[in-house]
Design a protein around this nucleic acid. Structure first.
Lengths: 103, 103
DNA sequence: TGTTCTATATAGATCACCTATGTCTGAACG
DNA sequence: CGTTCAGACATAGGTGATCTATATAGAACA
């Protein structure tokens, strides 16, 4: 996948609804129709980093299937970060568009 | 800048018009209003790689200021590559959009 | 009880990109 | 003429995010 977008995708996914780790990647794969597949080895380090930086919070709970799972939800700082990440993403999309199809 | 988009930007820039190395980065910086600034240390390795892979061709010529410069133009293979890169980019933008704003 | 599935976890490798620096050439200028 | 300066190209070395591969634990089930 595209480097630099993972935080954005994770933050937005758990902003919509708190989820456990693999639930986040399942949701991303599902909603993008398989375009983005975030594997555990990419997912968990990212979650740990985001938690350490205070953008998300994890607490042990249960998954949909009743299994023990760490459920993450977004923090106030995370919402703030998400806003700036979205802006940054929009800016990038615009800029690439300008190069691809100059006015 | 966003990793994975450099080839796309370079290929499209010299497809529109052949340019020498620094001319490419000048053009990208100018048209994106400074959002993307490709510095020589990123640019030249990318150009060499693209040339080695047959997507662009360089030939010694002159810059706008009459200096000795290596002018690159896109090859047939480069156009093909550009097409697939554009498709890939569109797909990514769509997928991120789906995560950010689910239907 | 041993196999499988869900779920979390981590080490190590990879690869693109960035920082910093170097080299070459020609022009301008004293 | 020598020196300096700027345009242009080049490369080494580092960084950081992501991927590959593997490991661990508990629950279910045969």
């Amino acid at each position: 996948m595209l480097k630099g977008t993972l935080d954005l995708l994770i933050l937005r996914t758990i902003e919509i609804q708190p989820r456990h780790g693999l639930g986040v990647s399942d949701r991303i794969a599902q909603i993008t129709g398989g375009t983005f597949v975030v594997k555990p080895g990419s997912l968990f380090p990212a979650l740990h980093r985001l938690e350490q930086e205070g953008y998300i919070e994890g607490a042990w709970g249960e998954s949909d299937q009743g299994r023990r799972a760490k459920v993450y939800r977004i923090t106030a700082a995370g919402r703030k970060r998400l806003t700036t990440e979205r802006r940054s993403w929009d800016r990038i999309v615009t800029a690439v568009g300008q190069v691809l199809d100059p006015a």
